[in-house]
Every structure is written in C-alpha cells, then in structure tokens.
C-alpha cells in the first residue's frame, strides 16, 4: 500500500515551466529523499503529490501520479480522499488554533474514523510521536503554547491520526533547532515500516542519514534517482557528483 508512480509530470507557474517531464517510482515502506538546491522544484514536486498545488490558481499540472494503480489526477477523483491517503508535514510547524487534543482529533472527527474512542486515538498518536508524557495533563490548553519542536511533533501526530498511507515531509526539520530536528528525524525513521515517506531536504547529510532512495532535482528536471547507497557512492551523472561534493548548488 502506498506506492507512488510519477509519470510525465509537468508543472507550470503561469509561463514558468517549474517541473519538466518528471518520471519516477517511489517504493512503499521506504524513505525517499528529494534533494537539490533551493528553487529547483523540490517542494513543487512534493505538493503535486497530494494535489495541494491546485490552491495556486496560476498553476497548471499535466501528467499523472499513480497511487496504488490509480491516477490521483483523474478527472473524477475525489481530492479529499487523495489528501487523506497522502498526508503532508509542512516546513514550518503550524498547529491549528485550537487545543492540543482537538489538533489531533480534528482529522478523525471529520472523517468519522472514531466513534467513541477518540480519546484512545489521540493518546495513541501522541504517544507515537513521544509527546504524550509532556502534554498529558494539559491536553486542552492551546497548541500554540508548545515549543516549536513540540509543535512539529504535534503536527506529525495530527497528520498520522487520519491514517494516511504516504507521508510527505517538506523540509520538516529546517525551521527547528538541532535537537528537535534530530527528534523528528528519528521519529521519521521509526515510521518507515508503516508508511511510504517522501522527504524533501536541502541537507545532503540528512538524506544520507535517512534515505533509502534519492531523487536529485536541478532546475525543474529530475537529474538522477536510485537507491541511496548507489546514489551516494557511485553517482551516475556529473551534475550529481558536483552537487554532492558541494561544487555547485
């Protein structure tokens, strides 16, 4: 469950061709890192995977993204269903302006996932991100009072509470302090068994630490992708070599 297949994906912002003919397979239960310099289209690619790009009106998307044998861009496809199955952890933690409890409970509530045992779901998700012990006696205080690192973990719990199959992480550690960032990283690693994870990062070392497979993007094009080991040890393209040795980017 949760394998993604990107086929001939093209994205335009107005006249600017932001993603050029992307083709890639993202295997299930693996961490796939998308790396590249800023402005290369990493985030665009990520947001095209759960159709969040459509919020921007100038955007035009062509091509297909298949999730378990079905194109998520098919005309009659229900967007909310796609977004339920493909969750997103944003760059900056953005807790909803409600209580800690409601933040986690929001998703299950609207989807009608849990009649009666909402408390258990909230507890389970908060435990999964290691936040339960810290917040158990202030579940109903505003989520914005948490520290930034805690907020990001809360956002992760919120995303997981709707039981997605794919987890997209958009530089989710970039705006955190090093210790919280490490915390999120190890969390992501533990999630690998249950989710397909696509991780955008500009931090090559992070990709090295986490990734099973790597996509390297450059100016809107997919330069190279493959298993992490081969990618880092024997990059095929000259551009990749230069980027990994930090000559460019």
């Amino acid at each position: 469950m949760g394998a993604l297949s990107i086929r001939d994906l093209n994205v335009w912002y107005g006249k600017q061709h932001a993603l050029k003919q992307i083709n890639a397979e993202i295997a299930q239960n693996q961490i796939t890192a998308v790396i590249g310099p800023s402005g290369c289209g990493k985030s665009t690619l990520l947001k095209s995977l759960n159709r969040l790009l459509e919020l921007n009106e100038q955007v035009r998307v062509e091509g297909q993204v298949w999730l378990d044998g079905e194109d998520i861009y098919r005309r009659d496809r229900d967007v909310t269903e796609v977004r339920t199955r493909i969750g997103l952890l944003a760059q900056k933690p953005f807790p909803l302006p409600m209580s800690i409890y409601d933040n986690v409970a929001y998703g299950p509530r609207i989807h009608g996932l849990a009649r009666g045992n909402l408390d258990q779901i909230v507890r389970a998700q908060l435990e999964a991100v290691g936040l339960w012990a810290e917040v158990r006696d202030r579940l109903h205080s505003p989520a914005t009072r948490l520290s930034v690192g805690q907020q990001q973990r809360l956002c992760l719990a919120r995303t997981l509470a709707v039981e997605p199959e794919v987890l997209l992480c958009d530089e989710s550690t970039a705006s955190l302090d090093p210790i919280s960032a490490r915390g999120i990283e190890s969390l992501i690693r533990t999630l690998r068994d249950r989710y397909t994870i696509v991780l955008v990062t500009h931090d090559i070392d992070q990709a090295r630490r986490l990734a099973d497979a790597v996509l390297f993007m450059w100016l809107g094009e997919l330069v190279e992708y493959g298993p992490a080991q081969r990618f880092f040890e024997q990059p095929q393209e000259a551009l990749t070599q230069q980027y990994l040795t930090r000559e460019i980017g």
Partner: peptide, 12 residues
C-alpha cells in the same frame, strides 16, 4: 464503508 458514506455526506 462508514467512512465512504460519510465522505459522500461531506461532499453533499
């Protein structure tokens, strides 16, 4: 099934 039915209601 319940979730699916709910989705229809939400869309409605």
């Amino acid at each position: 099934k319940q979730v699916r039915r709910r989705r229809v209601r939400r869309a409605l």
